[in-house]
Amino acid sequence: MERLFETLPETTVTIRVDPEASVAPIREALARIFDTGRVSVIEGSPTQPDEVVAVRIDEVVAASTAESLLQSLLLVNSDIYITGSRELDEAALPDVLQALHDIPFQLRGYPESDSEKLLLIAVSRAIERRAADAAAGTLRVGFQQLSRLVEEPGTYRVYERLAETDLAVHAYGVGDTTPPADLDVTTHTGTSQLHRKGWFVVFEPPTPAVEPAGLYAIERGDNEWEGFFSFEPSRIDAMQAVITELATTQPQ
């Protein structure tokens, strides 16, 4: 499971936050999650293209409003996704967050943090929406426990919708429940580290004309996660290869 992290590029990004936006929590949240030496969150300027910008090699590569980042990370909780009060068609990542692709993050869930884990959920939903819009291709998803797919109403509705398309949907996790027979999802159960500790959502589109997307994370401790997300086709292929290999060759 580790080799995907070993191939990540030595990319660095600077996030500049307009001080007039009064969004100190954004600076703190991004610094905590991406505190790996690859991302710097600093005070920006009122003259920059938007309230929050991402800079790579002295070039602004993405810009977002403070509000979009607050709604993604700080002013919401996981219930909006679990209950389905935020519809799949509303799922989107602010451009500044997308600019942090292929950079490892480290985050904590409740009770250590009320907001950090939302990055995992928000990226997952954005990839699921991309797959739903394409309505074809392959989607591989790690739930840790398959009961999450069945018992979380919002998640179940998302996968009902995905299963109604031409997507090949594969769900991985501990087999603590059996999804309904009419849900067209292929399940892969086991007790390996991949099944128990892997949180991944990997979309391989049906044609190169559609951009792939993948999230890959490992639970390192109790509700503590390390991962990254990517839109690079070769990296998405590598994610799929690792998932299919580990799901079939590790002790079950």
Rank of each mutant, 00 (worst) to 15 (best):
I80M: 14
L75S: 08
L73P: 08
I33L: 11
Q98E: 15
P46A: 12
G44C: 05
Y81F: 15
S147H: 08
E51S: 14
P94D: 07
R148G: 14
S40R: 15
E112G: 00
V55D: 08
E90L: 01
V13H: 02
L74E: 05
E59P: 01
R27C: 08
L149W: 05
E128K: 12
L97P: 04
L118P: 10
V39I: 12
A66F: 02
A122Y: 01
R38N: 13
G137W: 04
Q144N: 14
L119W: 12
P19H: 00
G37R: 04
I80N: 02
L88K: 02
S113G: 11
G44F: 07
A134L: 14
L97Q: 09
L118S: 04
L100N: 10
T12C: 07
R38A: 15
L73W: 03
V141D: 09
P104E: 09
L100Q: 09
A92Q: 11
T83M: 12
D133T: 13
V13M: 07
T11H: 04
Q106I: 05
E10H: 11
I82C: 01
V60K: 02
R38I: 00
Q145A: 15
L30P: 08
A63W: 03
A99T: 07
I42P: 00
D50H: 07
A92Y: 03
